[in-house]
Design a protein around this nucleic acid. Sequence first.
DNA 1: GTCGACCTGATTGTTGACAATATGCTTGAC
DNA 2: GTCAAGCATATTGTCAACAATCAGGTCGAC
Lengths: 223, 223
Amino acid sequence: MAENRVTGQAGRNVVGTGIRQALRSGDMVPGQRLIEQELSDTFHATRSSVREALQDLAAEGLVELIPRRGARIRVVSVDEAIQITECRAALEGLCARRAAELATPAHRDTLIGIGTRMRQAVADGDLDTYSALNRRLHDLIAEAGGQKVAQSLLDRLNGQMVRHQFRLALRPGRPAQSLPQHLAMIEAITAGDPDAAETAARDHLDSVIRELRATPDRDNGEG
Amino acid sequence: MAENRVTGQAGRNVVGTGIRQALRSGDMVPGQRLIEQELSDTFHATRSSVREALQDLAAEGLVELIPRRGARIRVVSVDEAIQITECRAALEGLCARRAAELATPAHRDTLIGIGTRMRQAVADGDLDTYSALNRRLHDLIAEAGGQKVAQSLLDRLNGQMVRHQFRLALRPGRPAQSLPQHLAMIEAITAGDPDAAETAARDHLDSVIRELRATPDRDNGEG
DNA sequence: GTCGACCTGATTGTTGACAATATGCTTGAC
DNA sequence: GTCAAGCATATTGTCAACAATCAGGTCGAC
């Protein structure tokens, strides 16, 4: 049964999502070397599939591909994380503005529901739920604003931030700090106030940048 | 001599840049089907190289890859072009703001020089030069602002716009319209006024959006 | 005359073997 | 003891043949 290797397009997906997952969960750390044969064994995929998956990940900026030297998980420095967050601020500001202009009543209801559950999650100290709601919120704002292009760019940027976001979420008091900012975004969007929505989104990410700045930069190196 | 096929990494580049070039020059049109064997013959590359190059282009959003059906040049609808330009506005606004804060005296000098030459090019009716200066200006602003991440996102977005930018540039009176906007950006950045710089950049791209909106949408379809 | 099944040619997908290259170790000289 | 050269091994890169699939056309039945 260990003989059934996943092949082709399927294999490519298995390896790609597998590595992404491993990155999120911390099973793979930045700087780590990725050897085609090993991945091929781990995921029961052919080397071709692994190769293609690595190309995909490199295109997403998650993996660094050095010719004749192989692949390693890309190290995102604190400085780069800040730049990424600055871009996110610009793009989420756009999405929030458009969402305030275009959100349907259904969107607004969903947003309000997320706000309520966020409040509850923070009160309960339930970090996992809060973080899931967080992602859901950002997704929904892009969707409500009809910004597919911005959404795909944001997905890409968020993917590169996993490591740093992981660190930030662990900081004591961080949820209590970000909750009111999230609520302000929801409030402005449901109120249909584009300027306030954009400002709220930017303010939120500016605060993330301040947190990143307060990061000891010994994270830059290898892993 | 026609026997010397370009191989491997080199081939991948040849094919990739070849197709990009063909796109810019209009030799390949959106919707057009790309057949691996044909490309392989045209560029004297192996089919492997062609395949990898197509993957690259698909990751950049220039080509659409349908499993078992092959590759075609992606059609960017007017609606999507507008979304792309909205994202550009957000990101270039960010770059312009930072450039106003961070530009070195050397940067400022170069910017002023570009402004002068742009004025001249428009006066001379030299569209090619103006368009080259245009690209140079946008590049320089991202660089002066130290926004590498934003710059790479903008490159990507601009790549997808080639077709539409081509159309816009041909409109009579378009350069005369965009010139003062470009000059305003340069002015604000060299004056070190971040707010004005961001506003100028956004205004410029808002005007592009207005032009796109005035596009007959019969461009959406195939080719 | 129209519809559907089948067949054929064109095109993409997959594989495994082979080639090229880098890395780290061993050996020997100084 | 240290350094350099050479060798062995691990790893990635390339290719060409083969397999799978799709599009379009042909033939026959109704």
